[in-house]
């Protein structure tokens, strides 16, 4: 017997994505992967927004999704640019090697 898919299912999915993204940020050593994990977090948000938009039968949420996507792209671009500058200077993309600034 099939259950109808309700907004709750989307919320669970997005929560899972959020957790996966967060854990990825916390665990992965490669900064490129960390950037990807951040994208996961943002996509969790997007799923939420799309689902709510559908639930309320209303367009604002989808506009929000598009905005978030655009911003995420910008953020990733800047992130990669900074990462490249770092790689040129230090020859590493591993988070643990960022150890000049401490205390």
């Amino acid at each position: 017997m099939l259950h109808a898919i309700s907004p709750i299912h989307y919320l669970v999915l997005s929560a899972l994505l959020l957790v996966i993204g967060t854990v990825g940020v916390l665990l992965r050593r490669n900064i490129v992967v960390i950037l990807m994990s951040i994208e996961l977090i943002l996509n969790a948000v997007n799923i939420n927004l799309a689902a709510f938009s559908r639930m309320h039968a209303q367009i604002q949420g989808q506009i929000f999704v598009l905005t978030v996507m655009a911003v995420a792209v910008a953020e990733a671009a800047v992130g990669l640019a900074v990462l490249i500058a770092l790689f040129r200077n230090r020859g590493t993309v591993i988070a643990d090697d960022l150890d000049l600034l401490k205390w």
Binding site: V25, L26, L27, I34, A95, D96
Partner: peptide, 15 residues
């Protein structure tokens, strides 16, 4: 086991 580097311990504290 969390492969804690500096950056990630910040993030860890945040979370």
């Amino acid at each position: 086991s969390l492969q804690t580097g500096f950056l990630q311990t910040y993030a860890f504290l945040f979370v």
